[in-house]
Design a protein around this nucleic acid. Sequence first.
DNA 1: TCATTAATGCGACTGATGTAGCGATAACAT
DNA 2: ATGTTATCGCTACATCAGTCGCATTAATGA
Lengths: 218, 218
Amino acid sequence: MIPPRSTNDFPDEPLPSQRDQVAAVPARRPGGRSAHVRRRVFDAVRTLLVEHGYDALSVDAVADRSGVHRTTVYRRWRDVGGLLADVLTEATGDEWRPPDTGSLNGDLVAINREIYTALTADPPITTALIATSFRSEQAGEALRIFWTDRYDRCAIIVQRAAERGEIPARTDPRRLLVAATAPLYHELVLLRTPASSHLAEQSARDATTAARAGAFAG
Amino acid sequence: MIPPRSTNDFPDEPLPSQRDQVAAVPARRPGGRSAHVRRRVFDAVRTLLVEHGYDALSVDAVADRSGVHRTTVYRRWRDVGGLLADVLTEATGDEWRPPDTGSLNGDLVAINREIYTALTADPPITTALIATSFRSEQAGEALRIFWTDRYDRCAIIVQRAAERGEIPARTDPRRLLVAATAPLYHELVLLRTPASSHLAEQSARDATTAARAGAFAG
DNA sequence: TCATTAATGCGACTGATGTAGCGATAACAT
DNA sequence: ATGTTATCGCTACATCAGTCGCATTAATGA
């Protein structure tokens, strides 16, 4: 349905072997102008998000704010989902590291507090991103990659806990992490439960208890 | 922002004490035509959903399909979210009962299989409803009510397990049920993980193990 | 039967989203 | 420097969601 589009600008220069071909891919031009457009648009997206929330985020608003023309934004990002996907992707290559508090429960609590903060932030950018992921292929894919990356990085927490002898060695990291964090997303995003701040600690504690009892090791 | 609107048609006749008041609420007319419109529109929604999926569901499409005029649909349901909310509400007053297999794990597996089936159905109506709940107040509220009702009804499962001595008596039903079901929603709806059919059994088993170990009782 | 008036039908209108064509600008190669 | 052309700016257009005012129909009460 939706034609495949690279959200990243100019990820690679054409290979030298391609330069001489007849039907060569058009040469890209990352220099100067395009980069400026990209930066101005991203700044506009972030500014609009934190100042007026997701509802104020339309392609037109971003275009007005950034000074870049409407059609240019549409051409390069297609829609709001593409914009958010690209901004998220740019932010996800960061140096985030999982917590290391010395205990499984402490690590899980730290993670859940981060999630809780993100999901109850105002304006609710994370929730808006999740909502957008249902409407935009690009946003959905970007979010999926983001989460996969985070769960992969957090696997070390489970490994360390196993090495300390807190939990069985065969414990599946992803299952444990999902069990610890999913209730937060479920209550706050899907069920829209009035936020209770000890939800983070509670879910972490329940997951720790489960892991110690040998769950996630089947 | 969004003016409150009753999604249910003619839930109550005006009270006798209101009939003589000067600025009385306009009398409703449930007879014949309105009911026909309602039924035709609902049929159109359901038909479009199962035949062409959520993407084909617009107010205009429903109006065309049902033969009811655009503006009438807009007036009575406001948007697609209102339509879905009303259809869901009509379907939720049913006689659904939680499973009773004789064991906590059996009951949780049965529930999770239902959820799994719903979330992997094609066309993905449940997922579409969740997506819509982010855009429509009415759909969000209807879904919230639906889920709250289901979790309330399922509390009996936890009670029975406690009476059988499977789990501590102080186990919190909702926490246990959320722990058992949330990973399904998380993987299938949010993370969009390629569906693996034993996810239902696995999550149920992990939650059972956790409950036996005394989680959800703090 | 008949008057009243909800509720619907109808067409026109607004606003927002997204696209197409084309000229203008500036990045790159020579 | 200079030509080529990728990219951008601009205008016009198309589509869809949603609303408004008014005419028409039919449910209700008398």
